[in-house]
Simulated assay, not measured.
Amino acid sequence: MTENPEQRSRTMRAVRSKETGAELKVRRALRAMGETGYRLHRTDLPGTPDVAFIGRRKAIFVHGCFWHGHDCKRGSRTPKTNRDYWVAKVARNAQRDRESISALEALGWDVLVIWECELREPETISHRLSEFLLQEK
């Protein structure tokens, strides 16, 4: 069954940019590790990281595979309708992500990107988070 434009518009408006399921999973993993001293969605930092450890200068972005152009099955999928718009939109998102990460690194921050598809393996994510937070500059 295909959606009409009104249904599609309603669906797209419902997509959240904050407090997503993927982001909540990462935060749950951080709390399980005993990590609590982080801040969320810091608009004073380039790219507004989803999670920021200010004192440690560490930022975590939790990216949806489709929206940020990951090379996994879901991320490489292109909508059948309005294809040119979506290809350009995802490309702009990916470019903005690269610029944000570069800007943070130029300010002396370490950056970790966690993709939505990676969250299927909680042990792997916990290990990556732990390594990231323990690594020294």
Score class of each variant (00 low, 15 high):
81 T>W: 09
86 W>D: 10
70 H>W: 05
36 T>K: 13
22 A>R: 01
91 A>R: 01
55 G>T: 12
98 R>T: 13
52 A>I: 05
34 G>D: 00
40 L>R: 13
69 G>S: 04
106 A>E: 15
25 K>C: 07
45 L>Q: 15
58 K>P: 00
81 T>S: 15
44 D>P: 03
62 V>D: 08
76 S>L: 02
42 R>K: 10
92 R>I: 14
25 K>E: 14
27 R>D: 02
72 C>D: 01
54 I>L: 15
81 T>C: 13
108 G>Q: 14
32 A>P: 00
32 A>W: 02
26 V>C: 08
67 W>C: 02
78 T>D: 02
66 F>Y: 05
75 G>A: 08
34 G>E: 01
83 R>I: 10
23 E>W: 00
34 G>W: 00
89 K>W: 06
81 T>D: 09
52 A>P: 00
94 A>I: 09
45 L>E: 10
92 R>C: 11
33 M>Y: 10
105 E>D: 04
50 D>H: 07
86 W>E: 08
79 P>M: 03
59 A>S: 06
53 F>R: 13
65 C>G: 11
45 L>M: 14
48 T>P: 01
89 K>Y: 01
26 V>R: 01
35 E>K: 11
91 A>E: 15
25 K>H: 12
36 T>Q: 08
107 L>V: 09
81 T>I: 14
108 G>H: 05
46 P>W: 08
110 D>F: 07
80 K>V: 07
37 G>C: 12
30 L>I: 07
27 R>M: 05
41 H>P: 09
101 I>C: 08
56 R>A: 14
98 R>A: 11
59 A>T: 02
62 V>H: 08
106 A>F: 03
91 A>H: 07
61 F>P: 10
76 S>M: 14
63 H>P: 12
56 R>N: 07
57 R>F: 07
45 L>W: 09
39 R>H: 09
81 T>Q: 09
81 T>H: 12
72 C>V: 00
82 N>K: 14
102 S>R: 14
76 S>C: 08
29 A>C: 02
55 G>F: 05
88 A>N: 06
25 K>Y: 12
56 R>C: 05
